[in-house]
């Protein structure tokens, strides 16, 4: 039972962390290697919010807005010149990640920061005492996934974004402002990354490098997932599940590299990952 809970909640956390990256990659075909830095920014939003004495829950909208605004600036000044050079975009955003990390260090210091747990304690699930916050993370992942599905399927923005994914030239000819769609998509992606940063704080420490540890894993998941949230959920469940199973039955050290190695093998066998299946 606890193995099952571990699998679904671990997958949920991975899903939350990877959504921002997927949003950007799905529509813009750009890998935001500063994703880890945005998670960190989100974490520090939580620190700043609680330090000013506000409710820790308020950090969620704050981080979304801060992440989004930084995203708009980044899209405009760093990513926009690089749409034709996707590999260079990886590098430029990686460099940006370094810069953001150092700025955070200069402002907040190197120290590990603390935030109160959003939901402390455990809940009884079928006789197992299980972390209440992890169960909440599962809920949050589902809400995020459904919310995004609604955004893509049910709104004008989603329709435009899908048009850009399918055929950008055609979308432009049809009169869609593709530049604006790109900016908005990037903003949503980075906003979500900030949000994910806040959601991570009860599970991790907040320090200038907190996001980097999650970067490679989410990158791999997004590569395997392709462009849809459905396939991302599948990827998180399968690879996250594999990580938990390997950690439990073989070795947590191997578990730590399970996602990266499996993702590489999956992509070798099926270059488009799960999006084709």
């Amino acid at each position: 039972m606890s193995l099952f809970l571990d699998v679904v909640t671990s997958s949920a956390v991975l899903f939350i962390v990877a959504t921002g990256l997927l949003t950007i990659f799905g529509v813009l075909k750009i890998i935001n290697f500063a994703h880890g830095a945005w998670l960190t920014v989100g974490g520090y939003c939580a620190v700043a919010t609680t330090q000013t004495g506000l409710s820790p829950w308020l950090a969620l909208p704050v981080a979304f807005v801060v992440g989004g605004v930084l995203g708009i600036l980044t899209e405009r000044f760093i990513v926009r010149p690089l749409y034709a050079r996707p590999l260079d975009a990886i590098l430029a955003t990686w460099g940006l990640g370094i810069v953001i990390g150092q700025l955070i260090t200069l402002i907040f210091g190197r120290d590990v920061q603390f935030t109160p747990s959003l939901i402390p304690g455990t809940v009884d699930v079928f006789g197992t005492a299980y972390s209440a916050y992890r169960l909440f993370a599962l809920l949050a992942a589902v809400v995020l996934g459904l919310g995004f599905a609604f955004l893509m399927e049910g709104t004008r923005l989603g329709l435009s974004a899908r048009a850009v994914i399918m055929n950008e030239t055609l979308a432009r000819i049809l009169g869609l402002d593709t530049a604006k769609i790109r900016t908005v998509t990037f903003m949503i992606g980075t906003g979500l990354a900030g949000l994910a940063g806040v959601l991570l704080t009860p599970l991790t420490s907040v320090d200038p490098n907190m996001g980097v540890a999650w970067l490679v894993g989410s990158f791999m998941l997004v590569m395997v997932a392709g462009e849809s949230f459905g396939t991302l959920a599948v990827a998180c469940l399968l690879l996250g599940g594999a990580q938990v199973v390997v950690s439990t039955y073989v070795s947590p050290i191997l578990g730590g590299i399970t996602i990266a190695v499996l993702a590489a093998l999956i992509l070798r066998l099926s270059p488009k990952g799960f999006s084709r299946a």
Partner: peptide, 30 residues
């Protein structure tokens, strides 16, 4: 691993092991 952040599986094993005491030695800080 030193940069690992997800202790879930290990904690579940700890709980099911029924150990009387826990001793840890992780990398400092995070």
């Amino acid at each position: 691993p030193m940069d690992g952040t997800d202790w879930t599986a290990i904690i579940s094993q700890l709980k099911s092991s029924g150990a009387d005491a826990l001793i840890t030695s992780t990398a400092g800080g995070a």
